[in-house]
């Protein structure tokens, strides 16, 4: 983890509710996709934890949904403005396994960390595929960016307005995979847990105080005892999760 002042390079609406922000600054503490950053915003006491979508040597990308007062302020930020950021937080996705055909299952804002994960898996010579699930066609984002990486992408919408009608699990039919990675809302996780047949990793979300393991605000119980979502997670192995 490092603390630094990051400069907004771009901040654009992807559609009516999702935004993409690029920040320039130190990314040396980022070690894995699925990690997150914690952003200090003027006028708010606690930071905003947002998962990393992508990063390179000098910049990082986050995707976020405007859901409250904090993300409303984020949506108003303009290029050149600066932010106090804690970077490289949490334990991200583990990608060193022997799987060849990992499946990425993303729902809504949970799609963000799967983009950096897809790039990491492709770099390892694996053949990932992605299922990206949205409520409706108007909320679809980043499906083209995933396709541009060169992996098969299926889109599902709950209302059937685009792609396969239904939830992420309704798009599983006929997909060959030997491992899965997922990030999305809890109802989606319960459906995935009933449907998948392999090992995998889930990324969890919880209201956080600090984001770096000090306050015990985001604890969860696992088969290996109490864990902090922010420091020991947010990614946990399927085998250790208590549902």
């Amino acid at each position: 983890m490092n603390q630094g002042i990051y400069t907004v390079k771009s901040n654009r609406a992807l559609n009516g509710s999702y935004y993409e922000m690029r920040l320039q600054g130190d990314t040396s503490s980022v070690t894995a996709p699925g990690q997150f950053i914690n952003i200090k915003l003027d006028g708010f006491f606690l930071r905003r934890p947002i998962s990393l979508c992508d990063w390179d040597g000098q910049s990082l990308t986050i995707l976020y949904k405007v859901v409250g007062a904090g993300t409303e302020v984020m949506a108003e930020l303009r290029p050149g403005q600066t932010l106090d950021v804690l970077c490289g937080l949490g334990n991200g996705f583990q990608t060193g396994g022997s799987e060849r055909m990992p499946l990425l299952l993303g729902g809504g804002a949970g799609i963000a960390p799967l983009y950096g994960l897809a790039k990491a898996l492709l770099r390892q010579g694996k053949q990932p595929a992605a299922i990206l699930a949205f409520n409706t066609a108007a909320e679809i984002f980043y499906s083209r960016e995933f396709e541009a990486l060169g992996l098969p992408v299926r889109v599902a919408t709950a209302d059937g307005s685009a792609g396969i009608k239904g939830f992420v699990t309704d798009a599983l039919a006929g997909v060959d995979y030997d491992y899965f990675y997922t990030c999305g809302p809890m109802p989606m996780y319960r459906a995935i847990e009933r449907s998948v047949t392999t090992s995998g990793q889930y990324s969890f979300e919880e209201r956080m105080g600090c984001g770096f393991g000090a306050c015990m605000g985001c604890s969860c119980m696992t088969k290996n005892g109490s864990k902090r979502v922010c420091k020991d997670g947010p990614v946990f192995l399927r085998e250790e999760i208590i549902w």
Binding site: F45, L46, G209, S219
Partner: peptide
């Protein structure tokens, strides 16, 4: 283990915890 989550809420000029 402490209390169930959410354990944290933000408020103006501070935070509430129920760890």
């Amino acid at each position: 283990f402490g209390n169930p989550t959410p354990r944290i809420a933000e408020c103006t000029g501070g935070m509430i915890n129920a760890v």
